[in-house]
Amino acid sequence: MKKITIISFVALAMLLTTGCSKKQEVKPVEPVLEKQIEVPVEIVDNSAANDIADDADSSVLSFEQLQELVKTVYFDSDKYIIKENMETVISSNADALNKKEAKTVSVVVSGHCDEWGTDEYNFALGQKRAIAVKNALESRGIAGENIKTVSKGEGAPVCGESTPECWSQNRRAEIQLNQ
């Protein structure tokens, strides 16, 4: 009985919107019609239509989109304290990692340095930067056991020139997601 009611409403709506001169191709965006005719919630029991409606409304993030949401955190020279202007980056990173799509990914925070400093000390500095970001994410509700840290010292620069601009780009902690 419910199905008959729905079909009647749908047919009426199609007549009103398209007229009778042409045969209308059935489009897959059926839920739009449902909304237009304000079908009472209690009679919507078509599970297939439900699935389509859920996907369209909640805009599920792909893994790549999720990775794009997490941003690099930058540090001052020889420091591993998170700067004030990086707090918003940390917060938005935490928001991204709190999304349901992030529940199944593992997180690696890698710490990096500029070319200054000595070999071992630079690697330790990178590690402290990675840990600082991990701790900040934990304080915003991200489970620490899902976050791995690694220091790459000055070994993986994003900028290879010997300029202050380059050095500031290389003093960073990157968040890499793994499926």
């Binding site: 330790a124 990178g126 590690q127 402290k128 840990i131 840290t149 690694v150």
Partner: peptide, 26 residues
Amino acid sequence: EGMLVCSDVSEDGSKLVLTMSPNGLP
């Protein structure tokens, strides 16, 4: 996890000085 470096080897080769961060801290 984090970092691991062999910084020195004893004269007899039986011991290493390591810098490592199993708990996150070097």
